[in-house]
């Protein structure tokens, strides 16, 4: 792959190391911890106790859980070479628009394809556990995406570079310095391509990763739609959600 104008191999290597190091430092669970947790499942009784929660309670618990994860995404972004050189307006916009994308990509680390479970609040849960949310379509779409992302079998390095490239999307609305972000994304994308090539991964693997972007976008939109509907029905509950959640996913 040709290098972007004015970019050296050394710089691509530096970006690769910076993104991978940031990913490892800002992943909530290490791969060893996840291996140990992978078979810690919710019992049928525990699943039923989640299913019998009120929608308000379940929404609030999920909002708290996602908010905790968002903080790790902010720290991931801050450690990516060049991100903190962007103006604050663009840093905020990229995080608001892209943090759910990063969480969806990272989700394949905490998904067990053998029993279709996802790590939630310390144990691995089936889609049925989230019934009380009243968003079965959103939950099923998330689990289906986790399944298809896990089939690609991305390494930690590939997850790191792919999520950084998605976060640095220059096509987000209201960005100030689109050109600067485009250059940054291009370097991270070339770093991902070169990493895949070095590992013998084909262009096909990259194409599979990129093919998930439309699904990720529709899940992000569905999440906002569900949140807006929930806010209409339970405005007082949304007001108790963590302020960071409301800041990121608010208007």
């Amino acid at each position: 792959n040709p290098l972007p104008d004015g970019c050296s191999l050394l710089e691509i290597e530096h970006i690769t190391q910076s993104v991978v190091k940031s990913h490892i430092e800002t992943s909530q669970y290490s791969t060893d911890e996840l291996k140990r947790m992978m078979w810690t499942l919710y019992s049928p009784e525990e699943t039923r106790s989640y299913q019998t929660k009120s929608a308000e309670m379940m929404w609030q618990q999920c909002a708290i859980y996602i908010t905790n994860a968002i903080q790790y995404v902010v720290e991931f972004a801050k450690r990516i070479t060049g991100f903190m050189d962007l103006c604050q307006n663009d840093q905020i916009i990229l995080l608001k628009a892209g943090c759910m994308d990063v969480l969806l990509i990272r989700m394949c680390r905490v998904y067990n394809p053998i029993n279709n479970t996802l790590l939630f609040d310390g144990k691995f849960a089936t889609p049925q556990l989230f019934k009380a949310l009243g968003c079965d379509d959103l939950v099923n779409a998330v689990f289906d995406l986790a399944k298809s992302l896990s089939r690609i079998q991305m390494s930690e390095e590939e997850i790191a570079l792919f999520s950084a490239a998605v976060l640095l999307s220059p096509d987000r609305p209201w960005l100030t310095d689109v050109q600067k972000i485009h250059k940054l994304q291009e370097k991270v994308y070339v770093a991902l391509q070169r990493y895949l090539q070095k590992g013998g991964g084909s262009e096909e693997k990259l194409a599979k990763m990129v093919s998930k972007l439309p699904t990720m976008k529709s899940i992000c939109n569905l999440h906002i739609d569900k949140l807006e509907f929930f806010r209409l029905v339970h405005p007082e509950t949304v007001y108790t959600f963590p302020p960071l959640y409301r800041e990121v996913f608010g208007s």
């Binding site: 801050k78 905020i92 302020p243």
Partner: peptide, 20 residues
Amino acid sequence: KEKHKILHQLLQSSTSPVDL
């Protein structure tokens, strides 16, 4: 700034991996 107070704070804070 007011609208994204927490994001601004998080972006300014120097959090070490240990803090995370």
